[in-house]
Nucleic acid binder design. Structure first.
Lengths: 190, 190
DNA sequence: TCACATTTTTAGACCAGACTAAACATTTGA
DNA sequence: TCAAATGTTTAGTCTGGTCTAAAAATGTGA
């Protein structure tokens, strides 16, 4: 059983590594978790002792297989809870992040499997992010492309958002853009 | 916002006071929370400073109005989550306690109100305990009577259980007793 | 009433997790 | 190549919550 703090560090390391393709620097982790680099040093040492992470100073922290497995389990919980909140409790997609951050730390894989079944094994969360299955596998979304990179005149449909901040999601709502919307790029502000 | 530890102490004080009709002694609280009396002394001091509890040494700890309000809010969360787990995720009534102990600490009254509405504002949880509404009010169940005190031959129906331990609940399952069961007492083992 | 069993508190320590300030190490750009 | 900028760690402190051991206070039974 891992503490909330440990789980948050694991999640941060995972997502920074995903995005950059490299290990996560202690400063990057500190920034993401709104904490200080010295705190990160301490926690990384603990994660290392528990065989969840490796650290090569100045080259980043990376997760071990076990660490990665924990990370995907937490992401699975987060995305399934977000899906539940939006699809069954009528929350908007810009309201669910903070609640899911709490719910993802509930310790029970059985609960999350039941929630998954209850909802019919959804493959994507309300922001279009893929939901890992029990084994950590998820649909590959590498094919998707940022709207800012789509050439003018090409028909596309929106499958997800890269930025899930409430402000950006509300902006999209205001523009009438949601998952499944079809459009062609007409004009670019650049 | 209160910590899990604070919430657990408040809940313990509330339920001991309910059961005994008096204040909760520090030793009783310690026993219920599987902790030590000295730890209770410390926490009670904190709750007192936050105006959530009063302590008259050797005569027990009691909650202030604000403390009681927090207690019923937690109980509301606990019972609504238990109801959700049983009615929608197909858990058995003897499996849900520990999970609800985790879920009751999720900080969002809006979430719990939405869950309440989603389930159609249930009045009782899977063990027959009344669910407080948003204002802390709940159905009065003082009319109910322990099965052991029911005279032979009188028709009764089961509306709740006094002991929600998994072992006892499984025993009831084995006897075919559940909420709503009608019966007359035939024989007593005493 | 008063000694004793019980209850409660104090004192000092520990752990997890965070912080500041300072020291230290490494990469990198000129 | 080497100094500056950046990244990292150390040392010491703090808070919340817990513990043990010992001291202090109280209710109660004879």
């Amino acid at each position: 059983m891992y503490s909330n703090a440990e789980e948050n560090y694991i999640k941060a390391i995972f997502s920074i590594s995903e995005k950059t393709g490299k290990g996560a620097s202690t400063t990057a982790i500190a920034q993401r978790l709104e904490t200080k680099a010295s705190s990160v040093t301490d926690m990384v040492k603990k994660l290392n002792e528990k065989a969840l992470a490796d650290h090569r100073p100045y080259h980043g922290v990376s997760l071990t297989d076990q660490g990665r497995q924990i990370a995907t389990a937490i992401i699975r919980k987060h995305r399934l809870w977000e899906t539940f909140l939006v699809n069954h409790l009528n929350y908007r997609w810009d309201e669910v992040h903070d609640l899911a951050e709490q719910l993802e730390h509930i310790h029970s894989s059985d609960l999350i499997d039941r929630l998954d079944r209850f909802m019919g094994h959804p493959k994507f969360d309300p922001h279009g992010d893929p939901i890992p299955d029990r084994d950590g596998k998820m649909v590959d979304v590498a094919g998707a492309q940022a709207l800012s990179e789509v050439p003018k005149g090409v028909l596309v449909h929106i499958v997800g958002v890269r930025d899930s901040s409430p402000a950006f999601l509300k902006l999209l709502d205001g523009l009438g853009l949601k998952l499944g919307t079809q459009l062609t790029v007409d004009r670019k502000f650049e």
